[in-house]
């Protein structure tokens, strides 16, 4: 993997609304042409972060750089970005066909044939007021805009709301196929982690406005294990290791342990009568986001 200049670089980014910190001291850098998942619970600060990456909102302190430049009022930078916002508003009386007609005026790589094909796949009605479309149809319109724009940085904020399982699969397949043909940087916020985890190359996890995790997706897989057995045995096995989560049932306990287990660990666990199971991607994120030690010490942090 060659190390290139990051396409997205965020340094110590903070956004406060009055006394509520939506985002606190977030720093990370993303390499170009990867699919990155932005994960976290509702109110974790995902949308706030995306708005600041696209110049729609302004940092209270810190910086966000896209292609090395400040995106705010930066036309040359912004035209390389397509941000599909979950709550995108459309003017009264605009039909989907109006929206799609306007897109090529602002997205240089717009592929109209691809957009038409997606309209067919999603069965999107073109001649109806966007405001009268169902939630899922509006999401489909956003997905079509994001994919057909082929913007070098494409940002999807919870793009699947209201989409049924079939339509979501159409989205994931189209995203993957088009990304394979036209590699570009894709930032995808979601809480349907299991559905997209295999598509991701990199993962950012936000919780209560702070960045919990900034990691390669593959290195995350298998980086935690669930160990179950008699509570005493489990706890002595877990001693000295980073425990993300602990459940008990009578005299039995299950702990989620962070860190890859060695074959020796496996043998020791088996010898102690413990069972080891892999922890799914989604479960790992959930455990990280609910881990008590991860709670920020500042009590004033609140949800949006």
């Amino acid at each position: 993997m060659t190390s290139q200049n990051p396409v997205i670089q965020v340094d110590d980014l903070t956004r406060s609304y009055r006394d509520v910190a939506a985002l606190q001291n977030v720093s990370f850098a993303l390499q170009p042409d990867i699919i990155c998942g932005l994960l976290g619970r509702n109110g974790a600060g995902k949308t706030t972060l995306m708005r600041m990456l696209t110049g729609q909102d302004f940092p209270s302190s810190g910086t966000a750089r896209m292609f090395g430049e400040n995106p705010v009022e930066n036309s040359a930078v912004l035209q390389q970005i397509c941000f599909v916002s979950e709550g995108q508003r459309y003017p009264d009386g605009y039909h989907a066909r109006h929206v799609l007609a306007g897109a090529p005026w602002f997205f240089a790589n717009w592929d109209a044939a691809f957009a038409d094909a997606l309209v067919d796949k999603f069965r999107l009605p073109l001649k109806r007021d966007v405001k009268k479309l169902s939630r899922g149809q509006q999401s489909a319109l956003g997905v079509i805009l994001g994919l057909a724009s082929r913007a070098p940085i494409t940002i999807f904020d919870e793009p699947y709301l209201g989409l049924d399982a079939v339509a979501r699969q159409i989205f994931y397949d189209a995203l993957l196929a088009d990304y394979a043909e036209n590699p570009r940087t894709i930032l995808l916020s979601t809480h349907l982690i299991d559905e997209v985890s295999n598509l991701l190359e990199h993962v950012l996890v936000l919780d209560e406005g702070r960045l919990l995790l900034d990691q390669d997706a593959e290195s995350l897989r298998g980086s935690a294990s669930a160990v179950a057995g008699r509570a005493g045995d489990v706890d002595s096995f877990a001693e000295g290791r980073r425990v993300l989560h602990r459940d008990t049932l009578g005299g039995l306990a299950t702990v989620t342990i962070s860190g890859r287990l060695t074959p020796a660990d496996h043998r020791a666990a088996t010898a102690a009568g413990l069972e080891i199971a892999p922890v799914s991607f989604q479960q790992l994120i959930v455990d990280l986001s609910t881990h008590p030690d991860r709670r920020p010490a500042v009590a004033s942090v609140a949800y949006e």
Binding site: P32, S75, V77, Q79, Q80, A101, A108, R150, N182
Partner: peptide, 30 residues
């Protein structure tokens, strides 16, 4: 593979053009 330029220094569409396109966007629904 289609190369997608990631060089922001190369503004794809000049700003005057984008301004008139905003007008087209307003008028897309006549």
């Amino acid at each position: 593979m289609t190369a997608i330029s990631t060089d922001p220094a190369v503004a794809r569409t000049g700003t005057p053009r984008r301004i008139t396109n905003v007008m087209r966007l307003h008028l897309v629904n006549r």
